[in-house]
Design a protein around this nucleic acid. Sequence first.
DNA 1: ACACACGGGACCTCCCGTTTGT
DNA 2: ACAAACGGGAGGTCCCGTGTGT
Lengths: 205, 205, 205, 205
Amino acid sequence: MQATVISDKKQKLIDSAIRLMLRHGYSDTSVDQICADAGVTKGSFFHYFASKEQICLAAMDEWSAHWRDILASAKFEELADPLDRVHRLLDVMEQAYIQCGTDVGCMVGTVAQEMSLANAELRKVFVSHFQAWVDETTKILADAKAAYPPRTDFDPAELAWWLQSFVQGTLLIAKSRQDPGFIRANIRHCRAYVDSLFGLPADRP
Amino acid sequence: MQATVISDKKQKLIDSAIRLMLRHGYSDTSVDQICADAGVTKGSFFHYFASKEQICLAAMDEWSAHWRDILASAKFEELADPLDRVHRLLDVMEQAYIQCGTDVGCMVGTVAQEMSLANAELRKVFVSHFQAWVDETTKILADAKAAYPPRTDFDPAELAWWLQSFVQGTLLIAKSRQDPGFIRANIRHCRAYVDSLFGLPADRP
Amino acid sequence: MQATVISDKKQKLIDSAIRLMLRHGYSDTSVDQICADAGVTKGSFFHYFASKEQICLAAMDEWSAHWRDILASAKFEELADPLDRVHRLLDVMEQAYIQCGTDVGCMVGTVAQEMSLANAELRKVFVSHFQAWVDETTKILADAKAAYPPRTDFDPAELAWWLQSFVQGTLLIAKSRQDPGFIRANIRHCRAYVDSLFGLPADRP
Amino acid sequence: MQATVISDKKQKLIDSAIRLMLRHGYSDTSVDQICADAGVTKGSFFHYFASKEQICLAAMDEWSAHWRDILASAKFEELADPLDRVHRLLDVMEQAYIQCGTDVGCMVGTVAQEMSLANAELRKVFVSHFQAWVDETTKILADAKAAYPPRTDFDPAELAWWLQSFVQGTLLIAKSRQDPGFIRANIRHCRAYVDSLFGLPADRP
DNA sequence: ACACACGGGACCTCCCGTTTGT
DNA sequence: ACAAACGGGAGGTCCCGTGTGT
């Protein structure tokens, strides 16, 4: 089918945009680089995307969808205990980031760092992507809170944003430190904090 | 005196570089912009800095020195209780970031996000700047741990890195969300976690 | 046809590069000058050539091809006597250089003078261009040697390199002296030397 | 003495200019490079020389003086036979160029190649430097011609220009070929030609 | 005699996007 | 759908030369 062939090119462009912008950010990724990486000519690029900004938006959508899939495949609903879901979330993040190896990072966060103050329109998009992840997380945390009255009260959404911040910061530092052990240690602390909110000892397995 | 005039220009260039790179990152900040912002010609720029990379390094040094001063002026040593020092650290961070208003961010973190995977030499510099902050924080945490045997054991350096990650992530998200309350809430959670390590209730005033 | 239009631009750029680098060398020829001379925008320049070095390489190829054509149109094969071919070679050179008028010179030699010690990669290319001319000349000299046992033995390749040196030096001095008679006199001496190798009197018509 | 210290700096600048322009030509040698190579600040440079062109002129004077000294120290006058003086001239050239090793070249010729068609004033200076060498050589050749009526008549000045051309060309090609043996072979051919003019067999030792 | 801040501009590179053609 | 020629302009580099002061 031709349609498949076509979207192949578009898909390759998006994949390349994700890979390159994840590594080098928005400004330092050129359309030419994306085309070269995707093995596609510039003519095709501008057929599919009106501008670099447009492919960036598409790439972020793809990136978010990818993470939505990861969370979906975590099958939280098969866990009866809501608190287990919280831990599985952290498990999933940990596994995913460790797998990234040297190319660890969040594409949305990387671009947001550069462009938030330069482009108000993009800024809103970044926030909406963050919000999507936060909403997902908020649900899980709210369920846990409902099931296990916390030792200390907390706002699930606020805690979710806190977790997102922590994720972004961990990825940022991980990019520089290039030490996988660091990610694991960081997540361990987060897990400990969440447990502490529910009155659990921090060394819970 | 001429010497003052001279260093004025260099200083202005560095200040502009910090302000602009903090906002827009490394690639999206042009030498022309820095010069225009500093009110200096490009010819003068090249007299002081051999390249954009060089002024970036100088700007990061300045930035780190600025934060070293902020920590120095926190006068931790006048607090007898080591745990109070931990909280004053968080107080200082909170105040500083709230003051930033819309221009919140960490210059080193912003540049590190883009350049860590593109320039190995710079990467080491980023890490060294992070490390400087982490070392300072580690000392404070280690003192607190020595004075108050924690309910849960922790490695002070590891926790300091965790805090640095949290700071970077918070600033990144804050750039996009542009909601000062978010920073306060985030720090509150961090404070709660540190307290929990020492067995204190999270709602400690 | 568009293809013709397209290669026109590339061709014009190469022609301008040859003309300008022949006159002013590599460093003193700017891409802007080449573009202006060719009536082409700099954007187009970069479409065809990745760098000034690349157009220089293309220009040298063109230059060598041009001289290969000149030698080919000399129709040496229609001369039965190999020694006549040697003289026709000198005739051809003489005519060509006299025709140049004030713009006399060898583009490869001119660039080689500046860049041989600065760029090892280019150096090899210069040598290969010289070698091509030398190979052609060597064949002619070897044929003559085979037909007319020389009074003094000589290595045809060595003599060809000697001739090439002489050509380059003559063009260099001619650039400064701006005296066409000088070229003719110089070639006369060369002719006399070659003849002397074959035991002919130097004043042979 | 202070005056000595001063001229030290000027001398170092000239020496560096010679070395650098010999290698890379005029345009590709920057004033900054000359200063760095000489270990002198740019302030000093412009104290001694009004422009890059001026130091180039001074450097060429120095270069010519250097060669005048080499010829002077050849002590041609102690040779009774004028033809021996011709051969000593070639001996001296050969030794000098072989000694240069990888940095072989003529500073005047190198700069002349780039600048002859760009700067008419400089062009005249180049010619005058060439002329000085040619005059010296012409005298030697004229003496030989007077002593040994040549088998073939020749104009000493014309032959001297021919020799200068040959020298420049040899140095140019030598820069690219980087093969010392080539210089020796080239000079051997020249020697053979001169001998042939006087009716000597080419294989004269 | 010398040092150095400083200026203005030119250089090469190359980027993003349009136009043209198939 | 795709390819490629093409344009305008900006980005980083850095060069030559001037000025001021010591």
